[in-house]
Amino acid sequence: MKAAGVILAIVGALGLQTALGRFVSRGTVAVDLVLVVVLYVALTSGPVTGLLSGAAAGLVQDALSSGVIGIGGLAKTLVGFLTGIIGTQFIVAQPFPRFVVFFAGTVVHAIVFMGLYVLLELRQFGTPYGAVAGQAFGNAVVGVLAFQVVELLPGVLERRRGQRARIRR
């Protein structure tokens, strides 16, 4: 059941990324929704689920891109595993620590991803610091918001139901 949820989330993120990507101004997508899902799953479910979801999501994303299949998968596997360990070893329950984890996770992902391409002499990235920082910030904001929505939504719905019940009485 949980695995199905993770797969659905990854497919949904991929669909959303490809569907909305063309509407974003300047053509530069500042958020990697798939990476956000991997980090979220790793933080909530631990290192094993994190690395498996990272590997699956990264491989599919690689296959849909024109790059080498496996580089994105490896980067996301590593980030998913490390984030899962952080999630189990430390208390990451407040927005700021979560923001830091999402931000750092994106930076590590970019370092591994770009580093492998440069190491294999397949691509040059120039000076991508601004782009990486922008994407890390975007991912962190979306990730923290996702946590807030998932955690607060049931309470809000419950309160509304309660209010409606009182009004009926």
């Binding site: 990324q17 063309r22 053509g27 530069t28 500042a30 798939v34 891109s65 024109s66 991803f113």
Partner: peptide, 13 residues
Amino acid sequence: IIAAGATPDFRTV
């Protein structure tokens, strides 16, 4: 054009 690239690192449609 029906979709953009799956990852921001590659510019494909």
